[in-house]
């Protein structure tokens, strides 16, 4: 049944790790927003999708990648903050269900605007020789990107942990996530802190989106939906609200998804269902995830 050489195993593992790193980058955005607002930002997957389109048009209009990609990141940050202001800010004291409906509305609006503006047909993402060149190690052939993605992810994770644990902005974010009212009394600007959180999450989604486009060079307006859902699941697996957990969850989901399909080839069609089955198992047996802590509800 299992018919795999060592080389093939390593090849799949490398693919799994790089897919997992992309999941991790997007999952961080979910987990940060959830930590601070207790809200699933349904639009996050679509912000990721918009980032790939920004990058696509940047390169399409002739900008070299080292200019196009930073512009992409800035535009995506603005988009993420814009979504927060338009869809979530005025609902801060509204019932939870209204905020979630607003989140879904925002997500749907972005998707359909993208269909109207960019057209529903997939576009080919420009590949950059520097990243996509295939290198051989022994018998394994991998794109450079396969190594670049995990390294970028780890560097970003370290930077983010530093930001959250050592800087004043990070302290404000932690304070707001513990208790909005108290944080406000301590002089924290809640709106600005939440905006920053969305900005950081969107920046990571943008970097994830660019690398996603380079790795899977076909982009279309609904491409954010599935990765979005899976990355939220990754965040739940790792323990929602915990950034390191989100990264671990992302790696776990990416590697196990690739391995599952590689080992049981008959299950290829069910690949997208796999993440949800894991989600339900996690919810049943360890709802707090790998790194999460139990939050008791206040009356």
């Amino acid at each position: 049944m299992i018919n795999m050489t060592w080389e093939m195993f390593l090849q799949h593992l490398a693919n799994g790790i790089s897919l997992g790193s992309l999941y991790a980058l997007i999952a961080i955005g979910y987990t940060m927003v959830y930590g601070i607002l207790r809200l699933i930002n349904f639009a996050h997957g679509d912000i990721f999708m918009m980032a790939t389109y920004f990058a696509f048009f940047g390169v399409f209009f002739g900008l070299p990648w080292y200019i196009a990609f930073p512009i992409t990141i800035i535009l995506t940050i603005l988009l993420g903050m814009g979504v927060e202001i338009a869809a979530y800010r005025s609902l801060r004291d509204a019932p939870k269900i209204s905020i979630m409906i607003s989140a879904i509305g925002a997500s749907f609006l972005i998707e359909n605007l993208a269909i109207v503006i960019f057209g529903g047909r997939p576009k080919a993402f420009p590949t950059e020789e520097l990243f996509t060149k295939v290198v051989y190690i022994g018998n394994i052939s991998v794109q450079r990107l396969t190594f670049i993605i995990p390294i970028v992810t780890i560097i970003l994770l370290v930077m983010l942990l530093y930001l959250i644990n050592k800087t004043k902005t990070g302290m404000a974010m932690r304070a707001v996530s513990k208790d909005h009212e108290t944080a406000k009394l301590m002089g924290v600007n809640i709106d600005r802190t939440i905006s920053t959180t969305f900005g950081i999450g969107s920046a990571l989604a943008a970097i994830g989106g660019i690398m996603w486009g380079l790795k899977f060079p076909q982009i279309q307006p609904l491409m954010g939906v599935m990765p979005g859902l899976k990355c939220f699941i990754a965040a739940v697996i790792g323990g929602i609200g915990n950034i390191t957990g989100a990264v671990i969850g992302g790696f776990f989901l990416g590697v196990s998804e690739i391995m599952l399909v590689a080992i049981f080839q008959g299950l290829t069609g069910y690949r997208d269902a796999f993440a949800f089955i894991i989600l339900i198992l996690v919810l049943l047996f360890k709802p707090t995830g790998i790194m999460g802590e139990k939050i008791s509800e206040k009356v």
């Binding site: 959830y34 207790r38 809200l39 699933i40 939870k96 269900i97 979630m100 859902l229 939220f232 699941i233 739940v236 069609g269 069910y270 997208d272 269902a273 993440a275 949800f276 089955i277 989600l279 339900i280 919810l283 049943l284 709802p287």
Partner: peptide
């Protein structure tokens, strides 16, 4: 399983369930 937890998990679990059904039927 999903109702033992708080609201947001139900949202994502039911959304996922609908996707699973679609994948299975395909």
């Amino acid at each position: 399983p999903a109702l033992r937890l708080k609201g947001d998990y139900l949202a994502i679990a039911t959304l996922g369930f609908a996707e699973i059904i679609r994948v299975i039927f395909t």
